[in-house]
């Protein structure tokens, strides 16, 4: 994984949870990391500080990714700092709210789809031309176990949006293969992050744990290695269009 040294990596949603774990791991591998955040500026600064104190290079870039202009600016700020983007980690996303069919509103559905689908498309349209100019690059999306099993209570639109990510990962992988851009996805299971602190009750988490063969929830640290594996040409140069499940055996291929 020495080939990640000096690479410019943009991780969206990197202030907490899985994104923060990935950003720290890229930093520890010697990459230059753009730590993107939306509302958690303090946490993002901490992630960047941790990377720097470990000898790495990091910047923070703020912005609500549900606005196309902001995505443009986040990519622009990253380019201004690093001059290139070798690895894009499309980690930002969220469940918004557990909502049954009876309570769907257009606003709710738009919000979930913008936060999990549209913004990823915007990152693709902004970053792919950059990678093409550079002569290559690497994109790691974040899908979810929800993409496979349809989602837990009230999270079906979210699950469907992650299904989009899994499908588009395969399609984009094919479209971009000639540009020497690999596209893969990490598909986390139930990982202990602010996501679940916010959207899942202790009872729901207990029920989820009961479905996991390892009989425990995962940690962001346990997802980090998979991001490094997929981003490293030395480790996974012949891998594209794949979704790797990191879920303690909860849902297998």
């Amino acid at each position: 994984m020495s080939d990640l040294k000096g690479k410019a990596v943009l991780v969206s949603g990197a202030s907490t949870g899985i994104g923060a774990g990935a950003a720290r791991a890229f930093g520890a591998a010697g990459a230059r990391v753009a730590v993107h955040y939306n509302s958690s500026k303090g946490e993002a600064e901490q992630v960047a500080a941790d990377i720097r104190s470990a000898g790495g290079e990091a910047i923070t870039v703020g912005g609500d990714v549900t606005k196309h202009d902001n995505v443009r600016r986040i990519v622009g700020d990253t380019l201004a700092a690093f001059g290139r983007i070798d690895v894009l980690v499309n980690n930002a996303g969220g469940l918004v709210k557990r909502t049954p069919i009876a309570d769907y509103t257009d606003e709710f559905v738009d919000r979930v789809l913008t936060l999990n689908v549209r913004q990823v498309i915007w990152f693709m349209t902004e970053v792919v031309p950059v990678m093409r100019r550079q002569g290559g690059g690497n994109i790691v999306n974040v899908s979810s176990i929800a993409a496979r099993h349809g989602g837990g209570p009230g999270s079906i639109i979210y699950a469907g949006s992650k299904g989009f990510i899994a499908t588009a990962t395969r399609g984009w992988a094919k479209e971009l293969v000639k540009d020497k851009i690999r596209v893969n996805a990490v598909s986390p299971g139930v990982i202990m992050t602010p996501f679940h602190e916010r959207f899942s009750t202790p009872e729901q988490l207990k029920a989820m744990q009961a479905m996991i063969p390892m009989d425990r929830l995962g940690t962001p640290e346990e997802c980090a290695g998979t991001f490094l594996y997929l981003a490293s040409d030395a480790l996974s140069g012949y891998v594209t269009g794949q979704n790797i499940e990191v879920n303690g055996g909860q849902y297998m291929p």
């Binding site: 299971g189 063969p213 390892m214 995962g218 940690t219 346990e222 997802c223 980090a224 290695g225 998979t226 490094l228 594996y229 996974s236 012949y238 891998v239 594209t240 794949q242 790797i244 499940e245 990191v246 879920n247 303690g248 055996g249 297998m252 291929p253």
Partner: peptide, 14 residues
Amino acid sequence: AARFVTGETIRVDG
């Protein structure tokens, strides 16, 4: 790096 990964098949297939 893969300690929460089990039952998975990694496809290395271009």
